[in-house]
Design a protein around this nucleic acid. Structure first.
Lengths: 371, 371
DNA sequence: AAGGTCTAGACAAACGTTTGTCTTGTGCGT
DNA sequence: ACGCACAAGACAAACGTTTGTCTAGACCTT
């Protein structure tokens, strides 16, 4: 018999046996993990056979007794196959890469949460990278993730610039790129819901926020608003249009721009914000100018991030089913990884209007006063 | 010359050259990534030599001309080494695992953000897993992550039950486990800051929230409060003590418990909440009972998650430097991975009192009325 | 008793790297 | 002309798996 490396000689040793049942993991703390080869040596078998047993490979004849012996040994030494080695051999890593601009704000994490749920449920792992909208990182990280074994990528709000050699699903990425499936909000529907809501309440003087140029959603959303406004016969006035520029995820994003609008003496009875965060900033600017929300000015947010419902007053907003979009993205990616060729180029998810406390009919009297 | 697999025969071919400079990545979309062996075949060298050049291994003599030839070829075929294979060979993956209960709420994502920043800066990747406080998952995922190649683990608010064979850093995990470094808040200091603040304002009838049993921080924080209260001569009354039970990350966590307190007619002028989310729920319950915050009841939160500053009224709270704690955790873990043996068992980070709008002197008149 | 079929498992190659050792050839000094 | 040092790179083993093929013996059939 060969000398064994790192493990006890005696198969029937009691001490080691109890280390499995009890909490004596600490015993194994410093030691290397047990490999197939070591296990095989211990059992007097060859590694291949052990592998076959442990993976229940069909079409191999191994007697039940041997199988049990192998499994017992695996338990005993707490054998964990090296997924690294397995991945190398099988050319499958069961790992995908997730790319996001940021990890700490509500939008992305909500999507990530949906992605994570689905991936873990399906037995996949994921590597995360964030790029803060920096183009060189957006260029570099996909490569790194692929090198690191990612079989596919999910990109959240990320402006991918060219095709990649693996399946990619983009959430809120709007460029059409070959090989990239886009999971997007149905922005037309979103614009309909929000504008119609304000219109029905009686608002006609509405201030609009356009998203930052680097945000993937900005363009589509704006086009939809323009289109729906036309349908409703609502005028979009340039002097009531705010262009966001700053890369912020705090309400400060919406505060100064609304403040400026007020200082210039513009008249409006409602604001359609680009997102909830900016809406909160806008509301603060309004309050600081002694305007009440919604009595004096109505505000509609966008996204329905967690904060929206907690805010005071609670925010009327367009809900993006973010978690669901994340799940959808993960699901589509996994389907594509499983060789499903017939995937959609775009997958639109319907938004929902959540009416809370920041919208009300316009205050005619006030409007007159301020003009 | 050997036949080459998958790449063009001619080294000087113009088309391939331009594929590197231009955006023609799409050409390579379906194909397998180029391996060292293929590259070597193409160059008429052996894989080892190519590896040596590309990694700038010192102590090897390769003429500059050959080196340049190799590098040119690598660029040309957009060679990306398989980190999988490299990891297997070098027994280093540059990957760590991150374990969290949840991905979508402010607390964990803020910590994750700090972790992610530091790890990426140092060239590490990380795999994430979330367990929703389910014990079997807390048991299983570390194993999986290790099998997947994680060299170390960071556990956020996770009740690890036993030592692991790799370095572990826990954020807000309070059990002392061998091999686990704890990054924790200085809870004693936190209790001092918040209680003293309320005490100085004049509050004597304070309702307290105790965290859920499964939350790692709950115990320590409570003990600190009890201890500081004693020092200040403040009485902690059982009928004003709320025990949180539900596993929620929404304000609903704090709403019903405070409502119940009010219905029972308890007198109090301030609430010390277990966290910001619960504080927001508490405030809502107070408002729904026609009590004003802070005029009638003061509320102190905990964590200073993003929402705290956005809320209306803006929340007075104890800031946990969450991002910083994440960074610290990552830094300690990396040090330990680099063989730094002399790591601390515990690393306490000081909190900060953020005074905003939810605390004010007590309303004596009201207190009398309600009694 | 010879041939055939099955069983139990060994063997070897492969995945894509890295790294220690070995070989070949060239140029040098004497 | 000889040995030597050094340059340039080949060779092989290893990391831990998986999987297709092969073999030795056992058992069965006629």
């Amino acid at each position: 018999m060969q000398p064994l490396k790192g493990v006890s000689q005696k198969p029937d040793e009691q001490v080691a046996e109890s280390a499995v049942g009890g909490r004596k993991q600490s015993k194994n703390s410093g030691e290397k993990p047990v490999s197939l080869k070591i296990l095989a040596d211990y059992l007097g078998l060859c590694p291949a056979t052990v592998s076959v047993v442990l993976n229940n490979v069909p079409g191999r004849s191994i007697p039940a007794e041997t199988r049990e012996r192998v499994r017992a040994a695996a338990r005993k030494f707490n054998y964990q196959p090296s997924l690294l080695a397995r991945s190398l051999r099988k050319q499958r890593t069961f790992t995908v890469g997730v790319l996001a601009p940021e990890l700490s704000d509500g939008y992305h994490t909500m999507v990530m949460s949906g992605i994570g749920d689905h991936l873990m449920r399906e037995g996949y792992f994921y590597l995360t990278a964030h790029h803060r909208h920096k183009p060189d990182m957006i260029e570099e990280y996909p490569r790194l993730l692929l090198g690191r074994g990612a079989e596919g990528l999910i990109a959240i709000d990320t402006a991918l610039s060219h095709p990649l050699p693996v399946p990619v699903v983009a959430v809120a990425g709007h460029r059409k790129i070959s090989g990239v499936t886009n999971v997007v909000l149905d922005h037309k529907r979103a614009a309909e819901l929000s504008l119609r809501h304000l219109h029905q309440l009686g608002h006609r003087q509405i201030a609009f926020m356009r998203g930052q140029p680097f945000s993937a959603d900005s363009d589509d959303r704006w086009k939809s608003i323009v289109s729906v406004a036309r349908e409703l016969g609502l005028e979009i006035r340039p002097e009531l249009t705010i262009q966001l520029e700053r890369d912020l995820t705090s309400p400060e994003l919406g505060y100064p721009v609304v403040q400026e609008l007020l200082q210039k003496g513009r008249r409006f009875t409602a604001i359609m914000s680009f997102n909830d965060i900016a809406a909160i900033g806008a509301i603060r600017a309004l309050r600081d100018a002694n305007l009440r929300v919604p009595e004096d000015v109505s505000v509609v947010g966008f996204d329905d991030i967690l904060v929206a419902g907690y805010h005071n007053p609670r925010l009327t907003t367009i809900r993006q089913p973010l978690r669901h979009m994340g799940e959808t993205a993960a699901r589509i990616l996994l389907q594509r990884l499983q060789g499903f060729k017939d995937y959609p180029e775009e997958f639109a998810v319907p938004p929902e209007l959540i009416i809370r406390e920041t919208t009300a009919p316009p205050n005619k009297r006030l409007l007159k006063q301020r003009g």
